[in-house]
Simulated scan of single mutants.
Amino acid sequence: MAKKVVATLKKEGGVTYAKVIKAVKSEKTGAYTFREEMVPTTMVQDTLKK
């Protein structure tokens, strides 16, 4: 099923997306968790600066 979703995101003439994975440190335990987001390629730098 995931392959079908990826295939629909790569249609010609559509908006291209990038998967951004950020490591976020928990204040309670100090452990790292990973947050994943699908963002348009034009907004990748803005997403990483947050």
Rank of each mutant, 00 (worst) to 15 (best):
T16G: 13
T29E: 12
V20W: 10
T33E: 00
R35V: 05
R35Y: 11
E27Q: 10
M43E: 09
T41C: 15
T8H: 03
V44A: 03
Y32W: 03
A2R: 05
V39W: 12
E27F: 01
G30S: 11
K28V: 14
T8D: 07
L9Y: 12
D46R: 10
I21S: 00
A2V: 05
T33G: 02
T42K: 00
E27H: 05
R35H: 05
K10H: 14
T41I: 08
K28D: 15
V20R: 11
T47A: 11
V15C: 08
K10G: 15
E37N: 11
Y17I: 00
L48N: 02
E36N: 06
K19T: 08
L9M: 14
T33M: 06
T33S: 11
A31P: 02
D46N: 05
E36T: 05
M38F: 10
K10F: 05
A18Y: 09
K19P: 00
A18Q: 11
M38H: 08
P40V: 00
F34Y: 06
V5C: 13
Y17W: 06
Q45T: 07
V39K: 05
A7N: 10
T8F: 07
S26R: 03
T8C: 05
Y17H: 10
G14K: 06
A7P: 14
E37H: 15
V6A: 10
G14C: 04
A31I: 15
I21K: 15
M1I: 11
Y32N: 09
T29W: 04
I21V: 11
F34H: 04
M43R: 15
S26E: 04
A23C: 05
V15I: 06
S26V: 11
T8N: 07
A31L: 15
E12Y: 04
I21L: 12
V6P: 14
T29H: 06
T42C: 09
A23W: 04
P40C: 00
R35T: 01
K11I: 01
G30R: 00
I21Q: 08
V24P: 00
E36A: 08
L9W: 08
G30F: 07
K10A: 08
G13W: 01
K4R: 11
M1C: 14
T29L: 12
M38Q: 09
Y17M: 02
E37F: 11
E36S: 01
V15Y: 00
K19C: 00
A2W: 03
Q45E: 08
A2H: 13
T42R: 01
V5I: 14
K22V: 10
T33Q: 03
T42G: 13
A23K: 03
G30I: 10
T41P: 15
A7Y: 09
T41G: 08
T42Y: 04
